[in-house]
């Protein structure tokens, strides 16, 4: 009985904390008379949400689309490159410094180049989302492949297993938890990428909407944009988490090492 009550509390706890934070925010803004153009209270943000529902919904959709296409590219390309990199020590050694160097570049710095090549709008946003989110996927897939227990490899090689056999029977299955684990990180980063690009080089998307709201000093609308992004981010993250759980049940139950 107490068990179920404790469980219920844990289930309800995220909602309670969120509501608590909003109430606290509202109270602070009112108590200290903080100007709404500085920090609007949640009630005003909600109002803006309702008032500008049309543009918010339309632009959220565009941002989501952009992000998902970039993310999809990152999954495909990241998986492929990860397999290649994890396949051989030589390729791993050769590409590793390149990838580290590439990852060290702040992706915002690439947006002007992308705009130069593709013009402003949809394409650079997709590419920024892609570029920023593919790295964790590559690294995780490559790590999964590169950390096969050498003894297990010996057992299989002694049976005459080819490299492809070892990858199919061991490498790829054991890489799945790493891969699905990396998707949660990657989807979050993909949102960062698309919004950055939208806010500097696009006429659409939540990033652009927030920029325009700022220009017109509609501070509640800026925050409403943030909320829309947060909701999208949480939903996609949760989807990835469910996917991970579904696909790699054995890893969670066996305490398989994960990064």
């Amino acid at each position: 009985m107490t068990m179920t009550r404790a469980n219920l509390l844990i289930k309800a706890s995220p909602w309670l904390f969120t509501i608590g934070l909003l109430l606290f925010w509202e109270a602070v803004v009112r108590a200290f008379n903080i100007p709404t153009f500085f920090l609007p209270p949640p009630s005003l943000i909600a109002q803006a949400f309702v008032e500008f529902w049309g543009p918010i919904a339309r632009n959220s959709w565009i941002t989501l689309e952009t992000t998902l296409i970039g993310f999809g590219l990152a999954v495909g390309f990241g998986l492929l490159l990860g397999l290649v990199v994890g396949w051989s020590r030589a390729i791993y050694a050769g590409l590793y410094p390149l990838m580290i160097g590439f990852n060290a570049i702040p992706k915002v710095a690439l947006v002007p180049i992308l705009v130069l090549w593709f013009g402003i709008g949809f394409v650079p946003a997709v590419l920024t989302a892609f570029l920023i989110s593919f790295f964790p996927i590559v690294v995780n897939v490559a790590t999964g492949l590169a950390t096969i227990e050498p003894e297990l490899e010996d057992v299989l090689k002694a049976l005459g297993a080819s490299k492809l056999d070892i990858m199919r029977k061991v490498g790829i299955p054991r890489t799945l938890p790493y891969f699905f684990g990396s998707l949660k990180v990657a989807i979050t980063l993909a949102f960062v990428g698309s919004v950055i690009s939208e806010s500097v080089a696009s006429n659409y998307g939540i990033g652009n909407l927030m920029l325009q709201a700022q220009a017109q000093f509609q501070v509640p609308l800026i925050f409403a944009g943030l909320v829309a992004l947060a909701v999208e981010g949480i939903v996609m993250y949760a989807l990835m988490a469910v996917l991970e759980k579904r696909m790699t049940r054995w890893a969670q139950r066996s305490g398989f090492s994960q990064t």
């Binding site: 227990e149 003894e151 297990l152 010996d154 002694a158 049976l159 005459g160 029977k169 299955p173 054995w250």
Partner: peptide
């Protein structure tokens, strides 16, 4: 001159596949 296929091996770690 290549892996002998008539051998079976076992090591200190059981190295069974968890999936």
């Amino acid at each position: 001159s290549k892996p002998v296929k008539i051998a079976g091996m076992a090591f200190q770690a059981p190295t069974l596949l968890p999936w």
